[in-house]
């Protein structure tokens, strides 16, 4: 799946590490879905995951959405805000789903303490390739920095997603205006545009 067709359901899994803005990105996607006329559900797990652990959020658009959870093997899109986490959850993708990978590592304490090794990019790419032929890497942290705020990395990724799937930009721009505090709206709108441009390069 590489393009979005209006009205067609969309199942997205967003993964990252606590503090990366995974939940806000997922909120923005829910809001965008609402603007595109969908029923939406967005499910996330709080609690222990806030303490530097893996974070996973589920987002579904459809004419009527029942299950809030995207089952393993059923995600149309996996958005990974951290590359190791993207591989970890890549079995959520259906066989031709899109893996959108932020080319960014947050080293888990198991690695920094020397108990494990962080896989290199080749290994990560190969691992993801076993699940889907369709992976797109983006240096969202650098782009967010150019936009003027590192914390907009999540929105850079949404910009890229909109470009790759052909989602209407305006739905996201309106969502940002609804969900993001006023003083951060401009930088987020800019980050969205920069992500959108970068994905076309």
């Amino acid at each position: 799946m590489t393009t979005w067709v209006s009205g067609q359901p969309l199942n997205v899994v967003l993964v990252g590490v606590g503090g990366q803005g995974t939940i806000l990105a997922s909120d923005l996607l829910a809001e965008a879905g609402l603007r595109l006329g969908y029923d939406v559900k967005q499910a996330e797990i709080h609690g222990m995951s806030q303490r530097g652990g893996s974070v996973i959020s589920n987002l579904r658009w459809g004419s009527r959405v029942f299950s809030p959870i995207v089952a393993r093997g059923c995600a149309d899109v996996l958005i990974g805000f951290e590359k190791l986490e993207t591989l970890r959850f890549s079995d959520y993708l259906r066989h031709d789903g899109l893996a959108l990978v932020n080319d960014y590592a947050i080293v888990p304490v198991t690695v920094s303490s020397g108990a494990a090794t962080y896989p290199d990019d080749n290994l990560l790419r190969e691992g993801i390739a076993r699940m889907t032929p369709n992976q797109h890497w983006i240096r969202a942290v650098e782009i967010a920095e150019q936009a003027g705020n590192l914390r907009t990395t999540n929105v850079v990724m949404l910009g890229a997603l909109a470009r790759i799937l052909g989602l209407p930009k305006v739905a996201f721009q309106e969502s940002i205006k609804v969900r993001v505090p006023l003083k951060y709206q401009d930088v987020n709108l800019l980050a969205f545009d920069k992500g959108f441009e970068a994905a076309g390069a």
Partner: peptide
Amino acid sequence: EHSEPESFDLELPVRPPVLC
């Protein structure tokens, strides 16, 4: 047919929650 998604045999480093 595809009730069980393919899984990989890679040993990925775990990311347990930790004291901040």
